[in-house]
Structure formats: structure tokens, C-alpha cells
Write a protein that binds this DNA or RNA. Structure first.
Lengths: 180, 180
DNA sequence: GGATTTACGTCAGCCATGTTGACTTTTTTC
DNA sequence: GAAAAAAGTCAACATGGCTGACGTAAATCC
């Protein structure tokens, strides 16, 4: 936000320092903050993606495959909420360029279980490092308890019927991560 | 997340109730929760948009114009971080269909200041109501102090150099809202 | 064991929304 | 009067969504 209209932003001088939200302030401020925060959050990986010829769709796919190795195509569709065809394009590029590989499921051979290659793992880790850095900085500024507060808030913002699935997914990934 | 692979989610039974984040759990869980929360958050207005032939781009534009009436095209470009041409298309449709109108700036007649029409205001309000409902529900579940915690976290997630501008923008809108 | 369903992939085409680059008009500023 | 700024526009293209139709292999059901 380099050059916003002075008439919108600087006409009337502001008191310095953080401003507490007034009790009856409308939630619209949170709507906008959520927008701005997410805008900057997803922009982080762009510089890494561009030279590879990838976009944000590739980032999302690689992230979830790396974080939840062995996931089925169907699981990914359910997470991303896009069609098989849309996913197919992006996934094919990631497979062709050696970031992801798919193996037939051992028990159900119709399934294609998705795994990151070492190269895919490395790239995914770059993204996580980048975005974690932003989050860590934000939590630092917020002080003690901010992390749990943020976690609870974000969970509560998810559709009620999806929360259990999301939490299970995350817990499972964390458990697997620790047992490696 | 209706039907996630049982092998990913239900193979090992989980203890009931909310799970506290372990102190050393990686921030990647927040990365994912942010993704899921935003995914559901922006999906809310879709049902209203579809019958009008509008998309999420229209929602964003109308939201900011309604919330900050009289803003310049440049301000909007700076907020949305898209090109003049991309904005132009969406804006033209909103103007043509009577949701937004643009008037020459009184002091600088090169500017086109953007205002919602009554119809635009009504539509924008529908979106705010919808998204506020989700946020209010989430805050309720989180208990006292959640709102301020969420506000601080989201602000801290914004690029440092943009925070002042964003906060000024929001404060200004709130002031104007109250003085009407 | 044959019918059905499931998981996945693919072709074709379309749409929404982003991009770059070039150029014009109007108006303000220096 | 020259330069810069605000906005609009045309053209072309890329990304990443979508629908609909269809194919194949494997699992499941009766």
C-alpha cells in the first residue's frame, strides 16, 4: 500500500501506537484484515514459483502432498475443492518435472498415492520455511498465548462440518512427522 | 471434507475434545488452518454472486468501494494488487449493471471517485452480513479476548510496510461510518 | 462370475481473472 | 509550455477454474 490517496489516509492525523478495537466496532474490520493478511501470506512463495514456471496452484498441491505423503488424489480434490481436471493439469506438471510421484495403492490398486520426491520435498520445505517465518514473526509481536488463540480462531472459521476432518488431517501429519 | 481417506484420518482413534497445540508443534499447522479458513471464508458469497453473473473479483471490488466510498481507482489498484486492465473489466461490469458509479473528483478532475449505488450498497451489505456471521460465530466459540487477539494476529500477518496504510484505511472508514 | 461402482485419467472447450505492452485523453503540476 | 499523473482502452496471452463426455482398471456386490 505504497501510495494511498492522502484524502483517504492522511488527511486527519492519527494518534500513534496500536489502536484497541472498540467494543461495538463492526466485524468488517476483521473481514478486511483477513483479506490483507491472506493476500500477503500467499504472495510469499511467488518469487520461488515464478522461475520454475509454476503458479500458486502448484504450491498448494505440492504443499499438501509433501505434508501428507501417500494421500490419494481424491483426498487432494476434497481439500482443494477443485475438479479432477483442474488438479490433473497441475499434478501432471509436478510429476513430469520430478517434484511428485504417484504409486499404485498397495491394498487398492486403483488408487494413486502421491508422494513428494526428494526434490519436491526440498521445494515444499522452502515454502513452509518462508510462510512459517511470517507466522512466527506475527506471533512474536502478539505475545504469549497468541499461537493458541490464532489456532483456535482459524479452526473456528472453518465450516463446522469440515473441522473434524481438518483437525484429524493435521494431527495425523504431525504424528507421522514425529515418527520419522 | 466429506470423505477423506480413512487411512489418513480414522485409522487410529483420536481422543475427544479440543487438542492443545504442543509447544514445539511446527507452524505448518497454522499454514494449513489459514488456508482452510480462508477457503471457506471467501466461498460464503459465492451463492449470492453466481445468480448475478459475478465472481469473487466483483465481490472484492464492490466491498472496498462500499466500505470506502469516494476512493480513487488508484487506491483500489493498490489494495487489490492487480493491474488497471484487470480491474477495468470488473469495474465496468459493476458500473454498467448499476452497482457502482464513478464521479470526477471535485478538486482533481482527472480522478474518478468510486461510490456504491443504493443497489451496490445493499449487495455489499449482504456480503458483509454473511461474512460477519461466520466471524462472529468463530469469536463466540473462542471466548473473551478472541476478537482483539484475532485482530492483532491478522495485522501482524500483513507486510510490515503496509500495516500503517491498512490500519489508517480501516480507521478512516470506521470514522466515516460513525459520522453518517 | 457378471454387473456395478469406484478411482483415476483424459480430451475438448469454455470462462473468469490475472498478465504485459502500447497508446490516448484529460488535467494538473512544474 | 513541458512533463507528469489519473484514468481508460485495445490486443494478446497465461493461469487456473469449470462442464460434459468418455475410457480403463480394479474392487465390490449379488
Amino acid at each position: 500500500m505504497a501510495d494511498v490517496n492522502p484524502s483517504l489516509t492522511t488527511l486527519r492525523p492519527e494518534p500513534a501506537g496500536p489502536r484497541p478495537a472498540s467494543a461495538d466496532a463492526p466485524l468488517v474490520e476483521l473481514i478486511e484484515l483477513f483479506f490483507f493478511a491472506y493476500r500477503d501470506f500467499v504472495a510469499d512463495p511467488d518469487e520461488i514459483l515464478a522461475p520454475l514456471g509454476f503458479g500458486r496452484a502448484h504450491h498448494r498441491v505440492l504443499h499438501f502432498v509433501n505434508r501428507h505423503p501417500g494421500m490419494r488424489v481424491t483426498d487432494l480434490l476434497d481439500i482443494l475443492r477443485i475438479t479432477k481436471q483442474s488438479l490433473g493439469r497441475v499434478l501432471r506438471e509436478l510429476v513430469d518435472q520430478g517434484f511428485i510421484e504417484s504409486r499404485a495403492g498397495p491394498s487398492d490398486r486403483r488408487q494413486r498415492l502421491l508422494y513428494p520426491t526428494p526434490r519436491g520435498e526440498a521445494l515444499a520445505h522452502e515454502f513452509v520455511a518462508l510462510q512459517s517465518r511470517r507466522i512466527a514473526g506475527a506471533l512474536d509481536e502478539c505475545g504469549a498465548g497468541a499461537r493458541e488463540a490464532a489456532r483456535r480462531f482459524l479452526v473456528a472459521m472453518i465450516d463446522a462440518e469440515d473441522r473434524a476432518g481438518v483437525e484429524r488431517l493435521i494431527q495425523r501429519a504431525e504424528r507421522d512427522r514425529r515418527s520419522r
